[in-house]
């Protein structure tokens, strides 16, 4: 990671503390990044996040994922063990200009988000035919 990216990183998180729910911990969810011939696949664990509580934005070449995870106990239950909590998941990825930000697709299922970012079609080398005069 470049120094520039690290600086951006801190600024990014610092500004995000000003959320509507400042008491929520901001957590970077684990991510798998894989590459196929035509696209980059980003897979993110977002347990407890409903579709309506998930935001995916692309701005200035940065893909930002924000998800609000809920933790709801049963009524009248007293929590006797707590190892995960309601959090604000947040992760930002800078997209190369070789990726097509306009055609990103995303699917959320069983607490896992799969984002597919297609590669731009490489400009094909054109053969110029010289026509005889």
């Amino acid at each position: 990671m470049t120094q520039e990216a690290q600086v951006l990183d801190r600024q990014d998180v610092a500004t995000e503390v000003a959320t509507p729910e400042p008491w929520l911990a901001v957590v970077a969810p684990p991510v798998d990044v894989t590459e196929t011939k035509d696209a980059i696949q980003v897979t993110v664990d977002l347990p407890g996040v409903e579709e309506q509580a998930l935001d995916i934005d692309v701005e200035n070449g940065v893909l930002t994922l924000t998800g609000r995870a809920r933790v709801d106990g049963p009524p009248n239950g007293e929590r006797v063990l707590g190892e995960f909590d309601a959090v604000l998941y947040k992760r930002a990825l800078r997209l190369s200009d070789r990726l097509s930000a306009e055609n990103i697709t995303a699917q959320l299922k069983h607490g896992v988000l799969r984002v597919s970012i297609p590669k731009r079609e490489e400009k094909k080398a054109r053969k110029i035919v010289v026509t005889p005069a």
């Binding site: 990671m1 951006l8 911990a25 970077a28 930002a92 990825l93 190369s96």
Partner: peptide, 17 residues
């Protein structure tokens, strides 16, 4: 893929964890 994507929050995330 990382040459196509740069992670911006990853370091902070590890710190948080």
């Amino acid at each position: 893929p990382w040459s196509l994507l740069e992670d911006l929050v990853g370091l902070q995330g590890d710190f948080n964890r």
